[in-house]
Design a binder for these strands. Structure first.
Lengths: 185, 185
DNA sequence: TCATACATGTAAGTTGTTACATGATTGC
DNA sequence: GCAATCATGTAACAACTTACATGTATGA
């Protein structure tokens, strides 16, 4: 399970509480892995059960108490082992493309509307990424190489969304050409 | 569930058996949606249960008997309704990037090995796509616009993989530079 | 003879989503 | 007063994976 390995990866940097991890997976990391709090708390209990992490109970005055998770030897070993394993290509599941490819039963205007709505959503996402909240953590890198890896990961997100936008805009303009050509006025 | 909508989309073209759909989702369509036979047979039973599709039992002499699924009115309506609904961005879950971003605890040679292995797998996938098996079905399009949508969907896959390859190759060459610069000989 | 294609399924497990549940503090 | 942040969880469900299960026909 990659969520568990992602958690081990973060705990390898420093201890985190479940809530902090939840904010990571819904903030700066969510352009390559996302998870709900439900999933994270469950994964953490499981990691504690198999003794890959240790729980430190931290009492807080103003805020609710929290559980801070520390990586243990066996967790570090599991992480290291996973990092050394070449991964297979993930199966692709792109709802948008399923919809797009069956859209011949829609009017031009409805296809265009779906595409434009999707472009809009990607633009919003890009704005968030480019606002820089995703790159603030770069300063916590322990080495030049680590910083390089993090920068590249960020760049991957930007490049993928830009690639997607190019394709979407091409689709739009070609569709408009097509429909102008077929039109009977 | 998108698998059900994808199935409805195919049955809207012509009737299919479960096995034929399984071959689609593991062949020409698997660059935008993939599914196992287990999932497909279950989804089909469910669609039959709610009467969106109808089962025709077809006896065959040499091959095992098969069930051919036909789209019914309510299935067509459900499909149409879904096609008109703008979709949200799917949450991203990219194992490779999780691994990549935590790889500072590996040697250069191991990071490079992971990247090269991934490049290799994408190249193999690209070879399959470019061999043309994915584009044979284009001739079954009912209209120019449908053909356009299918071609664009195919192109999306190719463009995404090419984009991925560019990023991976950039990572490789920059990593090699970095390690040459830090090297003590 | 051995693998592959045809054809359909069950069972058990993992992963991910959505809704429900609680309760203090801080800022508008 | 109301929403948001902090902080952790349970329960039910939906989606996906992997292994098991069966049996014929065809071609290398």
């Amino acid at each position: 399970m990659s969520l568990k390995h992602a958690i081990l990866g973060f705990l390898n940097m420093r201890p985190f509480s479940g809530y902090e991890l939840y904010k990571l997976f819904n903030g700066s990391v969510n352009n390559y892995w996302s998870a709900t709090h439900t999933q994270i708390y469950k994964a953490l209990s499981e990691l504690a059960r198999v003794k890959m992490v240790e729980i430190e109970l931290v009492h807080q005055e103003t805020n609710p108490d929290k559980k801070v998770y520390h990586l243990k030897q066996s967790g570090k070993a599991e992480l290291q082992n996973w990092l050394e394993t070449p991964l297979d290509l993930a199966p692709v599941r792109d709802k948008f493309l399923v919809q797009f490819s069956f859209s011949d039963s829609l009017d031009d205007k409805d296809i265009i509307c779906n595409i434009e709505s999707y472009i809009e959503k990607i633009n919003e996402k890009m704005d968030v990424i480019k606002a820089g909240h995703y790159s603030e953590y770069l300063k916590y890198a322990h080495s030049n190489r680590e910083k390089f890896l993090w920068e590249k990961t960020l760049e991957h997100g930007i490049r993928s969304y830009e690639n997607e936008l190019h394709w979407l805009r091409d689709c739009l303009s070609e569709l408009k050409q097509l429909s102008a050509g077929t039109e009977e006025s």
